[in-house]
Structures are given as C-alpha cells and as structure tokens.
C-alpha cells in the first residue's frame, strides 16, 4: 500500500477572490429541518493538525468552510447543502497562502437530495512555518461518522437515510440500513 502526497500548487496571493462564496452553516441542533427542494444534508469530517483559514468548495454553489470550523483536531460539519457534485477547490493555510487542488486527484463528492450525505474526512497535515507544505487526503471514515451521528444527531439520523457520497463506492451504510448487522 502507499502513502500519498497530494500534488498541489502553492500560490502566494494577496488578492481576495472568494467574496462570492457562501459560508457553510453548521447545524448544532438535532432537529430534522424541512430540506428545501433540491437539497440534502452534508456531513464533512475535518482532521487537521493546524488551525486553517478556510476551504473553498466548487459545485452548484461556491461554498466556504470558515476558520471557525477548521480548528486543529478532528471535527464534523453537518449542514444543509444544495444537491449536486462538489469538488474541493482551495485550501487556505493562512489568509495569504492557499493550495489549489488538482482535479485529477479525485477530491470530489456528491450530495443527493433528501438524504444525509457523508462525503469523507478532509485529512490535512501541514508541516513547516514560513513555507508550509500540506499533505491532503479525502478519507473514508464512514463508521466513525456514523457513531458521530448516532451520538450527536440521533433524531436526524432516524429521519433520514445516511449514504456515502465521497470518492469511490462503499456498501457499509446500505448494509447497516438493511439491518443485516442486527442478525
């Protein structure tokens, strides 16, 4: 097996070009909301060894994960999001330095309407101070995310189907949902 270093483009910039991105609003209450038309829940895991400035996602809408949700350690963002295919576009290590993601590296996920879409854990390891280098992966931690939902959002979990929307295929949630695990 391999350890992957992501191919990234390190760009210095002082130009703010993200003003059109809307911030992803993190849900805190375990109450199933009336999902508007073509939208679903998105569950994103973040695992970073350093506080980050922001992450931009491209998709039906341009989305920003802000610094409040990108603190050092492991955390989750559960939010409502318009259905469609998204990709991770940029990671801002600080307010003046960002990485542009290589689309060949499959930093993509799908949100389906009416469901809870676990789309993976953005695992970011950053080393160095003046010229930081980041190692990035979109990990599948489905069972750990399921435990998070059972623990923090049991009501929403009961109301909606949890599906995997991250890179690749995963039969785990559908297996659980079919109740086979209870036998």
């Amino acid at each position: 097996m391999q350890v992957f270093l992501v191919r990234i483009f390190l760009i210095f910039s002082i130009v703010l070009i993200t003003s059109c991105a809307s911030k992803l609003k993190k849900l805190s209450e375990d109450k199933d909301i009336q999902l508007t038309g073509d939208s679903g829940y998105v569950l994103i895991g973040i695992d970073t060894n350093r506080d980050l400035y922001k992450i931009l996602l491209d998709g039906p809408r341009r989305i920003e994960l802000s610094s409040a949700d990108l603190a050092e350690g492991e955390s989750y963002i559960l939010s409502q999001l318009e259905a469609g295919e998204y990709s991770v576009d940029r990671l801002y290590v600080s307010n003046y330095m960002y990485y542009k993601f290589d689309n060949d590296d499959n930093f993509r996920f799908v949100v389906k309407p009416g469901t809870i879409n676990y789309v993976g854990h953005l695992n970011i390891v950053t080393r160095g101070f003046w010229y930081p280098t980041s190692y990035l992966r979109l990990d599948n931690r489905s069972s750990q995310s399921l435990v998070f939902m059972e623990d923090k959002f049991p009501s929403i979990l009961r109301s909606r189907m949890l599906i995997y929307g991250g890179p690749g295929e995963d039969a785990f949630y559908s297996y659980i949902d079919n109740g086979k695990g209870d036998k």
């Binding site: 391999q2 993976g120 599948n140 890179p167 690749g168 995963d170």
Partner: peptide, 9 residues
C-alpha cells in the same frame, strides 16, 4: 479499494 480519494481511482 475505497478508503481515500487516491485509492478509489
């Protein structure tokens, strides 16, 4: 075959 975005390709 699917544990991260790289191996899933």
């Amino acid at each position: 075959f699917n544990h991260n975005n790289y191996v899933a390709q």
